[in-house]
């Protein structure tokens, strides 16, 4: 009897673990959040409180940042345009683009990123990609048009922004845009609730799609409206930017000296709320791509 019980328990655990699906899912519901992914917000010059130590930092110039992350539809348009004019190309299972290289100092363990072509995104990760490619044209997968672009490398994010005469924001610019001047830990204030952002186990409607890891939410989802019966709070940053915490990490432009890692800020849908505080950063080599990493652009 005991043996049977333990055997059944073992089998149950195994099957429970294997039962879930991967990132690939049925098309998500179409939700128009009303937040325009093409809009930009002005971040005025001035001091702000940076890091968890609230160190006063002066950014002495105005700049603009996109109100939302770059969406799949926007990135598909970029790919189509850039492929057409030859700015980028398809090599094997990757889209490649030129990058002028990082300064190399021959430091211990230093990885060299010389001038050359680098991968912008993979084409063979169909389960996680939110884009379809018919051999000539990229389109966003149905339902994912206004979700943030993911599976994009730092080179891909950088190429997108530069293509439209912008750039990736620096980490300082990003943090100021996310939290304003008053030292708040989250873009909308002092506490993170499930109605503010998409993070691990935040119970948003898209979490049902693939289990606790969840899926991305459309950009601007947490805008005070009720979507699919899920009530949200309007949670922009003080400068009006949405999704500056949770949903997807955002690549920023800084190159970490010697190691050449790039920073990913803002947390993502599969991290706990404590890791979407505005100063918590992640970093990785620039060729990395993930279902949790996207970006938005800045411009002067």
């Amino acid at each position: 009897m005991k043996r049977t019980f333990f055997f059944l328990l073992f089998v149950t655990l195994l099957t429970a673990g294997c039962a879930s699906s991967t990132v690939e899912a049925t098309p998500p519901p179409q939700i128009d959040t009303g937040v325009d992914p093409d809009s930009w917000a002005l971040i005025p010059a001035g001091e702000f409180l940076a890091d968890f130590t609230n160190e006063e930092i002066l950014v002495d110039y105005d700049y603009q940042m996109m109100v939302t992350d770059v969406t799949n539809a926007q990135f598909a348009d970029f790919l189509n345009a850039a492929l057409k004019d030859g700015t980028i190309k398809i090599v094997g299972d990757e889209i490649m683009g030129y990058y002028p290289g990082d300064i190399f100092r021959e430091y211990r363990h230093e990885e060299e990123y010389a001038a050359g072509d680098y991968p912008l995104m993979p084409l063979d990760e169909e389960a996680a990609l939110r884009l379809d490619f018919d051999g000539t044209t990229f389109t966003a997968k149905p339902g994912y048009e206004n979700h943030p672009m993911v599976m994009v490398t730092w080179f891909g994010a950088n190429a997108y922004c530069q293509y439209y005469d912008g750039r990736l924001p620096s980490a300082i610019e990003w943090e100021k845009a996310a939290r304003g001047a008053d030292g708040r830990p989250f873009p909308w204030g002092n506490e993170a609730q499930q109605t503010n952002a998409n993070y691990y186990h935040s119970n948003d409607p898209f979490e049902d799609v693939i289990g606790r890891m969840g899926d991305t939410t459309p950009v601007g989802f947490y805008n005070g409206q009720t979507h699919l019966g899920f009530e949200t709070e309007d949670s922009p940053s003080p400068y009006g930017l949405y999704d500056m915490a949770g949903n997807v990490y955002q690549w920023v432009g800084d190159v970490i000296p010697y190691q050449h890692y790039r920073l990913l800020l803002g947390g993502a849908k599969d991290v706990y709320a404590v890791r979407i505080r505005v100063w918590v950063s992640n970093n990785v080599e620039p060729v990395y791509f993930s279902p949790n990493a996207g970006f938005r652009c800045a411009q002067d």
């Binding site: 429970a16 673990g17 991967t22 990132v23 389960a127 996680a128 949790n292």
Partner: peptide, 18 residues
């Protein structure tokens, strides 16, 4: 990979919690 981890993570979470 990150894309395919969830079944494994769910199982390991469960075993750790048990």
């Amino acid at each position: 990979s990150e894309s395919d981890q969830q079944p494994l993570v769910d199982t390991l979470d469960l075993l750790t919690e048990i």
